[in-house]
Design a protein around this nucleic acid. Structure first.
Lengths: 186, 186
DNA sequence: TCGAGATGTATCGCGCCGATATAGTGAGGT
DNA sequence: ACCTCACTATATCGGCGCGATACATCTCGA
């Protein structure tokens, strides 16, 4: 997932590690932050695989060491492949978020599969919570119950949110309304 | 976190790994599921540390291998320590959820610190999202914006939810109303 | 001038994940 | 009577990401 995100960012512009991490945080909207302990190893993996390359330091560097990375042709291919894929890793919290960050570049068909897969995953989580809430009945810890209720509310909202996105995917061109994503009847 | 949860469950009743995992899923309401690849190593760590012990198979087992674990005196002490602690690991999604699952056993003072720490963490995430939304302005990807808006909504709700819990901690005894956790004025 | 804070790269140990292997148990169907 | 399927149960492996930590440079204002 990190590698996917790195490729996506480097596709737009070359960067070095530090910038990459900031951009990652920005693009992912704080819902996910990767640490350097993940980032640098990931960069080396990508480099070893030939998907990214270090840029030559054209400017006459005095001291300060920085390595600017640029995506390679193979990297672009790989990114396109990853973009078109959908599977369990695109449905969990993290994978979905990262995929969504590059959704404009994602083929429409894949978008649909990811959205529906995600919906299924969230519905399953919701049912899990419902089950726990029901099974535990009266004897359940008060705080746990509250947490479950929050979880229920959150998952229900996300399902509704996904339904809207899916609906819009099905009827493109209805995007006229200014951010009219609140106020649906049900 | 896993070890904390295991101790908490074993405090109630001895169990073997498989049951432990199911209970974990149930108690945590599906918001968190630990895999066996985490569970069994954790059990061995706890056993090595002397916090849990394997029960002798009293019943004349024929074949089926199962190991029933029971919490030790040291384990109980350790659990009490963990219960009373609060720190960054109690404020992230996972840590908070696990802590909450044993909140009834948690000292009131610690409950307060955890609740407030969590609120702070969620508020920070919320501000991170707001910043990303503002900074990106108009040029931001449509889907990313939607995701951020969902995240904003979710974090705002969680803050409100936390405020209610905190308020109730401050005024114990007002628990009369039946699940009246919806419909607060602000 | 000098120190704080941002920029920048890097590594280490460890916890957790997903996949996988292995196998006993119990209920239902045919 | 037999078979198969789902469930119960334990265990390991490689790999990824985390938090902590270390180190060095650059920038700007007191």
């Amino acid at each position: 997932m990190l590698e996917f995100a790195i490729l996506g960012l480097l596709l737009e512009t070359p960067m070095h590690g530090y910038q990459l991490r900031k951009q990652l945080g920005l693009r992912l909207g704080g819902f996910r932050v990767f640490s350097y302990g993940s980032l640098y190893p990931a960069l080396r993996r990508l480099q070893r695989a030939g998907l990214i390359a270090e840029e030559e330091a054209e400017t006459g560097w005095s001291k300060r060491s920085r390595r600017t990375y640029r995506i390679s042709a193979e990297g672009k291919e790989r990114f396109a492949e990853l973009l078109a894929e959908s599977g369990p890793q695109s449905w969990d919290d993290e994978g979905f978020g990262v995929h969504l960050a590059f959704f404009s570049r994602t083929p429409a068909e894949t978008r649909m599969r990811i959205l529906e897969g995600r919906r299924r995953a969230v519905e399953e989580r919701r049912e899990g919570i419902r089950a726990a809430l029901a099974r535990a009945g009266e004897q359940i810890d008060r705080y746990t119950r509250e947490l479950h209720e929050l979880g229920l509310d959150t998952t229900e909202r996300e399902v509704r949110w996904l339904n809207e996105l899916i609906e819009r995917e099905r009827h493109p061109g209805d995007e006229a309304g200014p951010t009219g994503h609140k106020g649906e009847p049900a």
